[in-house]
Design a protein around this nucleic acid. Structure first.
Lengths: 191, 191, 191, 191
DNA sequence: CATGAATGAGCATTCATTCAT
DNA sequence: GATGAATGAATGCTCATTCAT
């Protein structure tokens, strides 16, 4: 057994994401997760005290992963829509590479348990900072940063959902839809 | 027994919507639904053969209700954005009046069970028809009806979610956000 | 509605016998019996206070019916084996005509509830009387009436089971098997 | 834990046989079986996926046991009726030693679920082979092996039932009843 | 008599969690 | 750490029985 060990913990995470995506979080027994991960039933509870712990840990790890991907290589010197386009592209690629995790995230963030927390994440903060810059330098319309942010987040969320339902979404469609965002948010050329 | 009978079936529907919204669909035992509805446990299964049947029936009824509200009083003679604005207003009012049902709908439509069906509803059809008219008479940009439709549905979905999280969302905010949609989709004045 | 009424009670009896034979006594819900009988659920409990009452009543009626058939036209003047052959023939015909009731009887008489009673019926009595006559006049072997009786009852029971499993049992087989009984029980010709 | 462990599985089998014999298969809740076996409710379902699985497994095990007992020490060199007598004795002893299992077997083999299968077991096969030998060497009457077999099986079944109802059945009775079988089946001395 | 909606105790089964090995 | 047998509280569902109409 030289080193094929991905680590049981990661095997569990992977199995959980798969099964949560396929059958739903509540509909997935821990025994099934352990089985697909190839570990014993009890092993899962060595890593996570409760099933809920596993869910929250998976959420935390996944969120960090997706944010890392979206916020990487972010060059604040670029124009706003160039940055946004890059972020969106990163999001799309991550979703294509991690469809199960994406589906798990969408599912979890709609659950009553999660909505009660309704935490604002790092993306919100970065986005708002960029938006303020964009409004300041005349790229974006004179609207509240909140409005811009919500609009953008709604779009990103929607794109993610569409990718999940149809991974072969054409580049043409994606580019055209980005144009709509741009038209909505940019400062009017004249006056 | 003067006449306070809303009917046990509706009591069950109401109780289910409440509890599903509060605690989640899977986290709600049928016994709890029956208790809150004020009926015996077995009565629930007199109306619905399984818990899943109840869920689907509630979804079906709720969907019909929300669509009825949104598509009522629809005057096709009006300009596109006037119609759209009216539909959005109806949606907002319905959501404010039926917050539990709204939360149930959002939850159910994210579930793997539902995504497998991924049915397109009456709203999709009506919207596409209106969009074609709008494109035809120059109100809307020369983009695919599909693109317009997805953009609008994403917005409506987002507004609904925001209303649920914050029912006191200001009219100013709502009007401004509608403007963004309009800017994105309208035909550019000048060529 | 001139007179097609077989009477709800008999409809219930018939439906119960059918379903008990098909699926087992315990596996048959009263609701199903009522449904097949074409009466309302509650109606069944107008005729029988409990399901158990229905079962016992059906047993009582069925037992009377089968005994009536087997003991009819019994001519005590005839030789023992002629009488026995006639009784067996009546039993076979009754079983062929009432397969469901026959299956119900066999099922019920094996149930722990019934075995606790272990009542001896009219057939036992009649048989023992005939046996004593047969022993007396030299037709039957000099064995206890109990032994003869058990032997005969075991055979009748077995024939009934075989008819149920295979209604087309040939006459040749039946006649040959009767010969075996006769050989077993008759008085040896020579001393 | 010195060694009194009979194994939970066997504890469950034993408890099930007892309760099935006492109260009937359908009338026995799994919770009661688990309780009498001294294990937790869930443990039963660790060994058997469903109650029906438990029933079938108990039947399979019991049938193997009784057949093992009846077919052991079978010396084909002996005359037919000596062999048959030995088999019957083994059956009687097994029934006396395992009354609960015996009652369970009789109950189960009368159930509609079982009758649908109506499998012929190893005993049938062995018996038929012996019968053919017996017919061949002139011990048995010139009748079909099927007829002999059914006659014998009916008798064995009846003896088992009598033992269950009255374990103190006298040896005299048993021997006399065996004589009847012999008279029925043996080849007539004189041509 | 007849109905069938309503009841609730009872049951099979599930599953997160524990723990001795 | 790792295992998986064992646990028992929780849950969906069944069904004999009741009763108002």
């Amino acid at each position: 057994m030289i080193s094929q060990s991905i680590g049981k913990l990661n095997l569990i995470f992977r199995a959980a994401a798969e099964l949560f995506a396929e059958n739903g979080i509540d509909a997935t027994p821990t025994a099934q997760i352990a089985a697909r991960a190839g570990v014993a039933n009890g092993t899962l509870f060595h890593y996570f005290m409760t099933k809920d712990d596993l869910i929250r840990a998976l959420y935390s790890v996944s969120k960090k992963d997706i944010l890392g991907a979206v916020l990487a290589d972010l060059d604040e010197k670029q124009p706003f829509f160039v940055i946004l386009h890059g972020m969106r592209e990163a999001l799309i690629n991550w979703t294509l590479a991690n469809p199960n995790t994406a589906r798990f995230l969408m599912q979890y963030e709609t659950s009553p348990a999660f909505l009660r927390e309704s935490l604002s994440d790092q993306l919100t903060a970065v986005l708002e900072a960029l938006i303020r810059l964009g409004i300041g330098n005349g790229e974006l319309a004179q609207l509240s940063a909140e409005m811009h942010r919500n609009f953008i987040l709604a779009h990103l969320n929607d794109i993610m959902k569409q990718i999940i339902l149809n991974p072969k979404l054409s580049d043409d469609y994606l580019e055209a839809s980005f144009l709509l965002i741009r038209r909505a948010l940019r400062q009017d050329k004249k006056r």
